[in-house]
Computed example of a mutant assay.
Amino acid sequence: MPHTLRYTKKPLVSSIPLWVRTDRPRREGMDYWKGPHSGIISATPGLEEYRQIHLAEANRGLWPATDGVETAIPPDRRIDGLAEVTMKSLLSPLSGRKQTKLAYADEVNVFRRTLLYLGPPNSARWYDVAAPGRQPRSRALIYLRRREGVSTARFRRHFSETLVPALAGAGELSELRTQVFMPWSERLWNTPSVAHDNPVEARFHASLVLGFTDEEARRAFFASDAVARASAGLAVFASAVHAYDVAEALTFVQGGRILPHHLR
């Protein structure tokens, strides 16, 4: 396990799980998201980065089975993708309000449900784990649900001080991003004509994006003894761990600049 994990704190990151409409082919919806809809979001002032994480259509759950923890992803709540929006500063959303209204209006053209999770200021951490020249060619998106009766402070402490270092030491990662979430509120992202149902028992409280050099490295990671040990300890703090297979991660804005073509 690394002795010290170096990371950069991001001032404000929005994590938006998305479900595409089911009255048209899924591929059509995913293509619209990376096409016309991405252009609307990318033009928002104040962005440091805008990334779309497209999830595989078949996602039963990559996390190893763990007693007392829901690791199988329920089909009726299975996410199609995640919009990861990183702001330059805490005040950036104020400058992007006009463009955000356009995004609101366009959501119904592609999505049937959208939710927004937001972390406390400067709580998102992008870890420096990639060796030079090692780009992530395979990824996993992981959501965690805090167990009832466990305090927010205790959950976050275990997440940041125990789970994240354990996973960082479980295999060679080429990407590690973590977020903890404030209590979910529909008012933060109440877009018209799109569902925002998010019952208490389905809400999440933290997430990770893990990157690997290839599929084989990812399979070895989730099958490792280190992940099994981390999962056993996590059962005290979490009631669900949903680990998604990421089909592709597309970056449209990087370093505050709109890219001429998205990066994979």
Rank of each mutant, 00 (worst) to 15 (best):
L12K: 15
S14W: 08
S14F: 13
S14D: 09
S14I: 00
L18P: 03
V20F: 09
D23N: 10
Y32C: 02
Y32E: 07
W33F: 11
P36Q: 13
S42D: 06
A43I: 00
A43E: 14
H54R: 09
N59G: 01
N59R: 08
L62Q: 12
D67I: 02
V69H: 11
T71E: 10
A72L: 12
P74Y: 01
R77D: 07
I79G: 06
D80K: 06
K88G: 14
K88M: 14
S89K: 11
G96R: 12
T100P: 00
T114I: 09
G119Q: 03
S123N: 09
S123R: 11
Q135R: 14
Y143K: 03
R145Q: 15
V150A: 11
R157I: 01
H158M: 03
L167P: 02
L167F: 14
L173C: 08
P183Y: 03
E186R: 09
W189D: 14
V194F: 06
N198Q: 11
P199A: 12
S207H: 04
S207Y: 03
V209H: 04
E215I: 01
E215F: 00
R218P: 01
S224Q: 10
R229P: 01
A230T: 04
S231K: 11
S231Y: 03
E248Y: 07
A249K: 09
L250C: 08
V253W: 10
G255M: 13
I258H: 12
I258F: 05
I258W: 09
R264T: 04
